[in-house]
Amino acid sequence: MPKKRKNRGRHKGDKGKEPMVYCDNCGKLVPRSKAVRVTVPYSPVPGDLARELEKQGAIVPRYYVTKTYCINCAIYLGILKVRAEDERKRKVSLTKAPARREVITVPPASKPSQTQTPAPSTSQGTQGAQAKP
């Protein structure tokens, strides 16, 4: 029977047995290297109320919650996508950060620009620089 994935769907390599973890969605026992871990920010305060409180200067706490899913639940929830065979063979990271575009801002013309006048050059300064190796 052909192998579908080179790593057999796990990250453990040749380490032997590893601990099992429970899926947070369905409760299935999954090997730790096969489980999908997702870290999401969680705030106990609703979003619209948090914005109002932050405008008034209050600090609204945000907690990071790590959830563990089995492969079936991760696909069902849309965390993982089913990929074609040639895409599975390629070594491409699934969670690649989007490329940041740098925005160049031009200062408005209404503000007077502050220009510095160049310092007057003296002949001693240039001679001293040439004399030293």
Results as ranks from 00 to 15, higher is better:
78 G>L: 09
57 G>Y: 01
114 Q>F: 15
71 I>R: 06
119 A>N: 10
72 N>Y: 05
105 T>V: 13
103 V>N: 08
53 L>D: 02
70 C>H: 00
92 V>D: 07
64 Y>Q: 03
104 I>D: 13
83 R>L: 15
91 K>I: 10
82 V>D: 07
78 G>H: 02
104 I>F: 13
112 P>F: 08
102 E>G: 14
75 I>G: 05
102 E>F: 09
73 C>F: 00
88 R>C: 05
77 L>N: 11
117 T>A: 14
98 P>Y: 05
115 T>E: 11
97 A>E: 14
105 T>P: 06
59 I>H: 08
67 K>M: 13
75 I>C: 06
83 R>M: 06
114 Q>C: 10
115 T>S: 15
74 A>G: 01
77 L>K: 13
100 R>F: 13
61 P>C: 04
97 A>Y: 06
57 G>R: 02
64 Y>M: 07
109 A>E: 04
72 N>P: 01
89 K>I: 00
88 R>H: 01
111 K>V: 13
116 Q>K: 07
102 E>D: 08
72 N>E: 15
111 K>W: 04
105 T>Y: 13
112 P>W: 03
118 P>Y: 14
112 P>H: 06
95 T>G: 11
63 Y>S: 15
97 A>I: 09
65 V>H: 04
73 C>M: 07
110 S>D: 11
63 Y>P: 00
78 G>Y: 04
114 Q>N: 12
83 R>T: 15
112 P>M: 12
57 G>F: 13
116 Q>S: 02
68 T>N: 12
66 T>S: 14
86 D>I: 01
92 V>M: 08
60 V>I: 03
118 P>Q: 05
95 T>L: 02
95 T>V: 10
81 K>P: 10
116 Q>L: 11
80 L>Y: 00
97 A>T: 13
109 A>F: 15
57 G>E: 02
109 A>I: 06
68 T>H: 11
95 T>P: 01
